[in-house]
Amino acid sequence: MTTLLAILVDGSIYASWLFLVAAGLTVIYGVMRILNMAHGSFYAIGAYSAASLVGWWFTGVGGNPYVSYLLLVGAALVSGLVVGLVVEFALLRRMYGKDEILMVIITYALLLILEDAVKLVWGVDPYFTYQPYSLMGRSTFGGLTFAIYDLGLVGVSLAIGISLWLILNKTHKGKLLRAVIHDREVAVAMGVNVKAMFAVTFAVGATLGALAGALTAPAISVSPGIGVEVIVLAFAVVVVGGMGSIGGAAAGAVLVGLTRAMAVHLAPELELFVIYSVMSLVLAVRPQGLFGRTLVRKI
Rank of each mutant, 00 (worst) to 15 (best):
M1F: 06
G11C: 11
S12H: 02
W17A: 14
F19P: 06
L20A: 03
Y29E: 02
V31A: 05
R33H: 14
M37H: 04
M37P: 01
A38L: 02
G40Y: 06
Y43W: 04
I45N: 03
I45Y: 13
Y48C: 11
G60E: 07
V73E: 02
A75D: 08
S79H: 06
S79Q: 02
G80M: 03
L81P: 00
L81A: 15
V86C: 09
E88S: 04
A90W: 10
L92Y: 08
R93I: 08
R94G: 00
T107Q: 11
A109S: 15
L110N: 07
W122P: 10
V124W: 00
D125V: 05
F128G: 10
Q131R: 08
G137P: 06
G137R: 07
F141Q: 12
L144H: 09
F146I: 05
V154E: 07
A159S: 13
A159N: 01
I160D: 02
G161A: 14
W165V: 14
N169I: 00
N169R: 13
K170Q: 12
L177D: 05
I181N: 04
V186H: 04
A189V: 01
G191C: 07
N193Q: 10
V194I: 05
V194Q: 08
A199K: 00
V204R: 08
T216W: 00
V228G: 06
V228S: 13
E229C: 03
A236I: 00
A236G: 05
G242M: 01
G244N: 08
I246S: 08
A250H: 00
A250F: 14
A251N: 04
G252E: 11
A253S: 15
L258E: 13
L258C: 07
T259Y: 03
R260M: 13
R260A: 14
M262V: 12
E269H: 09
V274A: 10
S277W: 05
V282N: 10
R286Q: 12
T294E: 15
I299P: 12
